[in-house]
Nucleic acid binder design. Structure first.
Length: 994
RNA sequence: GCGCGGUUAGCUCAGUGGUAGAGCACUACAUUGACACUGUAGGGGUCAGAGGUUCGAACCCUCUAUCGCGCACCA
């Protein structure tokens, strides 16, 4: 760093160092290096969608992971940060299909068929799959790229198949015809987690049906769509009674197979057992539309009219009523959400929403519609396709979740143990910056409130629909015999056997030996059925590989709370299920020690960032303009634990300014010279000034605060500490004060011998002090750079080398790269006593700084221009040295600071009194007496308020009796100080008035 | 309906019982001396409201208002 530029230019250093780290294999984890003295630390990345691009959410998430990984390396751990991407079934397939449609290549993926379409998805993946990885590298992510995984890698696919087969053999995976969440847009089943409820404004339609008596009904066993028409009645008698039914979905009337009332409802109980005539399809004769009135407790008498239409094939609750009463199911819809022939002539072929309108028209025409009221209800939407889902009977694969109890109990709840659950601020674990890694410790969520959400979900867990009617994904490893007798049922066939016992199927990770006689299940698995294996499938499971042995369970997981059920909960269950095998020798097979949930990044208006709103900044653009370190620092500073983040580019500008400040502080150090003489970088305790001691103590405090922040995962606290320490304490005070010592000496050459021979003159003392100051600066900067490194990896590496700090370190301890430099330890008692660091020094500087601030304030009030040098007079409260005076001159921008122990101020002298002494600013003839009086009166007023408040407290006998001694003492001291100040201000005021 | 989180300076947020804080924004002054991506000084707050506990409450408890999120859901 011979020629250092005036401003930090990130573009010129970032790529250079990233390549350096890659070339030196700094990110590569070696399981063989793990030992009791070099513990493992591991994180698996939440794999981004393979075709995605970097968003601010990724920046937040991955910056935190990188900070944790880099900190762990500096703590001397063997670190694995395992990266990779997710195939993201629906998302990717949809994107590719859309692109192909847009390009006019296809109208629908069926045009090409499965094989050709998949070929194109793979091509797309090859083309776009690397983008987000490259972007992560720009951010500085220190992932072990040699272990990059993709959820559809061959080895990974084998893991997915193995997991399926094992669970199938245990009887936890079954196939069944069930009511599922069906997405008519993508035409696949979805899990409950992929459905989001949205409030919809619609109508509640009231229509009437006639109650009839049908004597001599011959009940035939229900059989699918023909159920109703299979019934034959001898006679149908009108009763002249009509029931009114309220519904939001009149288009499903043709699928109704009963009308339900509450058996306890006095209005309707008497009708149970009679029938009504279903109004639709209009063209069917009455006798083919008779449906029974049944009694079911599910019906709420308060809602609507208290009469419920029951559509077992198109509503979850109705399906269950249908089960209880053995009602037939009439499927009236195609998989694409259009009505089928069973819906009747009027509706057949219409889209379900169009059909709703037409159904209302038909009811109106026949005089059945009584009224329509506006109504708002919650409707389930497909999260991906953003269309209302359709509850639909279909045959799917389901998973009864494994290891639920273990998974539920392994997460520490807030009331588990008050002691352990609370943050361990200042504890010994926090001080050395390491978290315990006992395998018997419960998993901990940060912030912990998510544990409750997790527990609630785990306690109400439903079987997971894992099959998807997509092409892009892992094929279900199940084959059916082609000539299939009982085992091979049509997918939308009937009857609805809810728990078919499937015999004669081939479920294996390998295809059957005689493939010509079998056909594979056409479906693929839910993407999350592969990602739930991520923490161990990426490390070589099912083999007990060195990586698994060394790095599983992982240390920390960093992810968004939006996927706590999708991913986190399932990974925990999978961990227990698949890593609990005794061959892995784990006392506790949980996948993580800690889970950190980030907030969600929003824009300044609090809206979630999204492509459609166009409110999501491009992180790469921000990196290009401000630098990766600036983006990281700004993001971290505005991201408190567990709170959503309102993103504003100003945060990044703050980060950029901060990097520039760091850069220039180092540049300043470079410009004032080398520390060779007389102490060669070693700090001489005898030559330390109070300012030196003060900054060392501040450094110590900063290190401790950083360790506490890390122990509590409070990254915004950590950045705030760094910001305050470096800018407000080091630059604003220490560097400014150090200029007094640095501008002092000149003749370095002869000073060393003179010091040794005890003949040190004032001049050579200046020289020695200058060198010592440089040594202190180097000490502070070399520690500071290390504290910054996890947050600002690029600029710290550049400065680490540029400043020459690398040269002083052993090769594997920072000599090659700051990445392996040891994380700073708090200054211990030996250090402090060797260098004579005491609270008195700290106090001395703090009161001195108070004096300086007030002196500057005096200047300001006297309307003295900031660049005008003036003469101050100091009446010190204790002994002052020549050096102290030099510092004061500098900090006050004074021409001189005259020390006069017996100074008597005249009328036109402005004064301040502090614990360090009294400071006078004589302004013969220049002072604005009235203005100064105003200022003093205002100050007096404030002092009086403060005094009154404390006096009131002290006058309270309860206060004096009950309060702890030190608090009482502190109040008394405060009162005394204010009273002294009051006396001073009063006399100053009196002097002006005399 | 149940649960969680928020409400503190113009804005974004820290602040676990003892003198209300930071950054940005704002005002004034300064500019060859590391840094204008800067420095110095300053203005600005009934800590959402009400009640309670306490010698003492932004902080603990209760209720209310309001914003956001999650879960469940009546057709």
């Amino acid at each position: 760093m011979s020629e250092i530029s005036k401003a930090y230019e990130p573009q010129s250093v970032e790529d250079k160092w990233y390549r350096f780290w890659l070339d030196r294999k700094c990110f590569v984890a070696d399981p063989a290096r793990v030992s009791p003295r070099r513990p493992a630390y591991s994180i698996v990345i939440p794999p981004p969608n393979v075709t995605g691009v970097l968003t601010m959410g990724h920046v937040l998430n991955n910056t935190i992971q990188d900070i944790l990984a880099r900190k762990a390396r500096m703590d001397g751990k063997e670190v694995l940060w395992l990266p990779g991407t997710d195939h993201a079934g629906i998302a990717t397939q949809t994107v590719v299909e859309k692109a192909l449609k847009k390009a006019g290549e296809i109208k629908h993926r069926d045009d090409w068929g499965r094989e050709k379409f998949l070929e194109r998805v793979w091509q797309w993946k090859e083309k776009h799959g690397g983008i987000i990885i490259q972007q992560l590298k720009k951010l500085g992510a220190s992932c072990d790229w040699t272990r990059e995984r993709f959820t559809m890698d061959e080895a990974y696919s084998r893991c997915v198949q193995k997991a399926f087969v094992e669970l199938y053999k245990k009887g936890l995976i079954y196939r069944g015809k069930r009511m599922v969440n069906w997405c008519p847009a993508t035409q696949t089943a979805l899990s409950d987690e992929e459905v989001v409820m949205k409030e919809q404004k619609g109508s509640l339609y009231y229509f009437k049906v006639e109650v009839v008596d049908c004597s001599g009904a011959v009940s035939a066993p229900p059989s699918g769509n023909a159920a109703v028409t299979d019934r034959r009645y001898n006679e149908i008698k009108s009763t002249g009674v009509w029931l009114t039914i309220a519904t939001t979905r009149p288009e499903t009337i043709p699928g109704d197979t009963a009308v339900a009332v509450n058996p306890k409802d006095p209005r309707y109980a008497k009708f149970i057992g009679k029938h009504v005539v279903r109004p639709l399809p209009a063209e069917l004769p009455r006798e083919l539309k008779l449906i029974p009135i049944i009694g079911d407790e599910h019906v709420d008498f308060e809602f609507g009219t208290g009469v419920l239409k029951v559509t077992p094939a198109h509503d979850q609750a109705d399906f269950e009523i249908g089960q209880r009463h053995k009602l037939p199911q009439i499927d009236i819809m195609h998989p694409n959400g259009h009505m089928n022939a069973a819906a009747g002539i009027g509706l057949n072929g219409l889209d379900r929403f169009k059909a709703r309108k037409i159904a209302v028209e038909l009811l109106t025409e026949m005089g059945a519609l009584e009224k329509e009221e506006p109504y708002t209800n919650n409707v389930g939407f497909s999260e991906r396709a953003d269309v209302p889902i359709e509850p639909r009977l279909s045959e799917q694969w389901f998973l009864k979740y494994p290891s639920v109890e273990q998974a539920r109990n392994c997460v520490e709840q807030e009331d588990d143990s008050a002691g352990r659950a609370s943050p361990r601020a200042g504890s010994s674990a926090a001080e050395d910056g390491s978290r315990e890694r006992s395998t018997h410790q419960q998993m901990r969520f940060h912030p912990q409130r998510w544990a409750k959400v997790y527990d609630h979900w785990m306690g109400n867990i439903q079987d997971w629909c894992i099959s998807r009617q997509l092409w892009w994904g892992h094929r279900i490893p199940v084959w059916y015999p082609k000539s299939g007798s009982g085992a091979c049922q049509s997918r939308d066939g009937s009857p609805a056997d809810l728990h078919p016992r499937l015999h004669d199927i081939w479920c294996n990770i390998n295809p059957p030996p005689d493939p010509e006689n079998w056909e594979q299940d056409p479906d693929v698995l839910d993407t999350w059925f592969s990602s739930w294996l991520w923490p161990f499938a990426t490390m070589g499971w099912p083999e007990q590989t060195p990586a698994l042995k060394a790095f599983y369970p992982t240390s920390d997981l960093v992810t968004g709370p939006d996927i706590i059920f999708f991913w986190v909960a399932r990974m925990i269950m999978a961990g227990y299920e698949f890593m609990g095998d005794p061959k892995f020798g784990l006392p506790d097979a949980k996948p993580f020690q800690n889970v950190y949930f980030t907030g969600i990044i929003r824009d300044k208006q609090g809206r979630k960032m999204s492509k459609s709103l166009g409110n999501s900044p491009d992180p790469l653009d921000l990196i290009g303009r401000h630098g990766a370190d600036a983006l990281r620092f700004g993001t971290m500073r505005s991201a408190p634990l567990g709170q959503d983040i309102l993103f504003d580019e100003q945060n990044v500008e703050l980060g950029r300014n901060f990097c520039n400040k760091l850069w220039n502080a180092c540049r300043f150090r470079q410009m004032v010279g080398r520390a060779d003489f007389p102490i060669q970088g070693e700090i001489d305790p005898k030559l330390l000034t109070a300012d030196d001691k003060w900054i060392l103590l501040k450094l110590d405090a900063a290190i401790r605060e950083m360790n506490t922040a890390f122990a509590e995962y409070k990254f915004s606290d950590a950045t705030a500490t760094l910001y305050r320490f470096f800018w407000s304490e080091y630059c604003d005070w220490y560097v400014e004060a150090s200029k007094a010592a640095l501008s002092g000496g000149r003749r370095c050459e002869s000073a060393q011998t003179e010091i040794q021979s005890g003949l040190m003159s004032a001049a050579t003392e200046d020289e020695a002090r200058k060198a010592n100051t440089l040594a202190v600066i180097d000490f502070v900067l070399s520690h500071t750079l290390r504290l910054f490194h996890p947050f600002l990896p690029f600029i710290t590496e550049e400065l680490w080398h540029g400043m020459g700090y690398a040269e002083d370190m052993p090769d594997d301890q920072g000599g090659q790269t700051i990445m392996t430099a040891p994380w700073p330890k708090p200054l211990d008692d030996d250090f402090k006593s060797h260098y004579g660091l005491t609270g008195d020094d700290e106090k001395q500087i703090e009161t001195r700084n108070e004096l300086v601030s007030q002196g500057r304030n005096l200047r300001r009030n006297a309307n003295i221009a900031a660049n005008k040098k003036v003469n101050f007079i100091l009446k010190p409260a204790r002994e002052v040295t020549r050096h102290d005076v030099e510092v004061l001159k500098l900090l006050l921008n004074a021409e001189s600071v005259e020390v006069k122990a017996d100074y008597q101020p005249s009328k036109s002298t402005m004064t301040v009194r502090t614990e360090s002494g009294d400071l006078f600013l004589p302004r013969e003839g220049l002072i604005d007496v009235e203005a100064e009086k105003m200022r003093l009166k205002k100050e007096l007023q404030k002092i009086d308020t403060d005094i009154a408040r404390v006096e009131q407290k002290l006058a309270n006998p309860n206060f004096v009796q009950k309060v702890p001694a030190e608090v009482l003492q502190e109040h008394q001291q405060r009162l005394a100080a204010w009273q002294a100040k009051r006396g001073h201000v009063t006399s100053a005021l009196a002097a002006l008035e005399s």
